[in-house]
Design a protein around this nucleic acid. Structure first.
Lengths: 339, 339
DNA sequence: AGCCTGAGGCAAAACGTTTCGCCCTCAAGG
DNA sequence: CCTTGAGGGCGAAACGTTTTGCCTCAGGCT
């Protein structure tokens, strides 16, 4: 049904080798190029990736494995990255781990089966299974957002410590007397780093800034944010400000905050990650914003370099800075200190 | 480097045919099965999908083409669908059209090159280019969210007319004296249908319910919603309620609404699509909610049936009902009628 | 005892590319 | 006029599977 080189040979009288050369940028006379191009158009020819991949062991395809597909942070990055990769001539296969390390391992197997030339991954947890198979086959891997503990691969991450620390500084400067971090378990790199940033900032204000960390059992649920907010507010001395360590917790905390209604003693909240949210809520809250475009670009460049064999040194880690987008003063300045 | 059947043959003394049979569920003696399994494990054997696909012309892989990857509506559906497909033994390749028909056509070509056994698509516009190639190769296609005008394929859509109409009914019943629809251009199926639903509902109340449709030039921008809201409110007699025809317009309209501040004459807003948003905003707004889980399941089933050749009739269209999640009364009951 | 059947196995021919080694021709340099 | 080398082309051998047609052998049936 589908046309092949043989059909083109029949129409042009050229050999398979010549036809192949034409499609791969080799030396072919202009007349023959035209001939082949014409025949290909007539036949609706499309190269068979399977045959090509089988023979050449390259697929011109990169794989992307996402811890969670349903997350603006991830999809924004992937969308930008795919555009860049397509320009470079690579197709992209996106896989969803749905927060499961097992699905993640399956995705990696799937991609290796598809002979991808490289993999970009937003890992579910600290350890990623199945990367040894990638290493064996010489498939380069770049991690995004989180470094990988059990494999030495390139990574593009943000400066999580400074991100959280700068949020704390803002709050301390705005007169807050007790800040809290609403975080997930230490099992992921991101959470450990953010917690560390929080501790560092708090330490810098020792004696002046009582602090408290509330750790939710799971890492990314809206409920965790909602519930955490309420538990913090039930403390004997509730925090005057809450820093949320990820997007979902931010969402949950804001829901809980709204339920309090207009209340002078409502805590300030610093959110994470989602600018849309920041734009829609009045008064505008303060947000830690990740440089998604940069993350995408750097990750794309890194994987392309590895795939092209241009980068031969050991694994590199790129650390990017976040931005603290300060919202309306009323949302972060402590009421008592304003008077 | 990678092990092949030949390596297994060397270890077991069996023929390639027998080994192939074993991996494809054919009849092989128990002793030989064990032998092969053992050798495969020792060698770290993984089947080469390229060779298999080249020969068998099946890839056990389905393609998903999304108009917009960065959209909760789309990713929620895909995430659920992928899970279902994986259970059925199929891998999934997700592609992002980034709202561009050209990228969409490229994605389809890409997928056909990868020999996918079927394609699920959320089309960018009314017409989709490249589907003829799928038809030629006998690759079944299922459209989601929007029907496709220039190709006869299966589709899973929602009842857009009733969705919008029921929102209007609610508003009319709540005493509103003028309703408006904030919509995009008629170039997409969804918009045409939603507009039609609006007109139908309005007609049912002729004389009693003045109405107005504001059409934004683009289809999915937050700015369109923001700007549309403001233009509607500048009318000589502004609407008392605004129905937003998609998620982005909802977002924009709510931003504009918030900027008005607490104002008794603020219009009611009925949003579209995003439950998270509905949960986070107080008082809770009213939302038209699509049955994402159902959409995912039905689409998965349809494409699997086609791929398995179980469904031989002409293209089917499944129409699912939306749900009108009514928010706090204060957000949709007309102030004047409350007194 | 002969016949038939079905299970299990085998060799070899695809599948559609890329690539290797070889050949021809033509032009430029000696 | 001969040599050299490069441009352009060719046939054929891979690549790792699946599949087809054929063979054998054991057991149950007449």
């Amino acid at each position: 049904m589908a046309a092949t080189y043989k059909d083109i040979r029949r129409m042009t009288g050229l050999s398979l080798a010549t036809i192949s050369k034409h499609f791969n940028g080799g030396n072919v006379t202009y007349a023959n190029r035209v001939l082949i191009e014409h025949a290909a158009r007539d036949l609706g020819y499309r190269v068979n990736d399977f045959a090509r991949g089988l023979r050449s062991r390259r697929s011109m395809t990169l794989g992307v494995v996402l811890a969670e597909l349903n997350s603006t942070f991830n999809t924004t990055i992937v969308s930008a990255m795919e555009e860049r990769l397509r320009e470079a001539g690579y197709g992209t296969i996106i896989c969803d781990s749905r927060g499961s390390s097992q699905a993640e391992a399956e995705s990696i197997r799937f991609l290796i089966g598809k002979m991808v030339d490289g993999i970009v991954i937003v890992p579910v947890g600290d350890d990623v299974e199945g990367l040894d198979a990638a290493a064996e086959r010489g498939v380069p891997v770049v991690a995004i957002d989180r470094a990988i503990a059990n494999a030495a691969v390139d990574a593009v991450v943000i400066d999580n410590r400074t991100a959280i620390a700068s949020a704390c500084e803002l709050l301390a400067g705005a007169g807050h007397t007790k800040v809290a971090l609403l975080a997930g378990p230490d099992s992921t790199f991101t959470m450990r780093e953010r917690r560390l940033g929080f501790r560092q900032a708090v330490k810098r204000h020792t004696g002046k800034l009582p602090a408290r960390t509330l750790t939710q059992p799971d890492n990314v649920s809206i409920e965790g944010g909602y519930d955490g907010f309420r538990r913090l507010m039930r403390l004997a001395t509730p925090p005057t400000a809450i820093v949320c360590a990820n997007y979902e917790f931010t969402l949950g905390a804001i829901i809980a905050l709204n339920e309090l209604g207009p209340d002078a003693s409502a805590p300030a909240i610093v959110g994470f990650d989602n600018l849309d949210l920041a734009r829609i809520i009045r008064p505008r809250p303060t947000f830690v914003v990740q440089p998604v475009a940069q993350i995408a670009t750097r990750a794309a460049e890194m994987i392309l370099q590895r795939v092209h064999g241009e980068a031969t040194e050991g694994p590199q880690t790129v650390v990017l800075d976040t931005e603290l987008v300060v919202g309306d003063a009323s949302t972060y300045v402590l009421a008592r200190s304003r008077s």
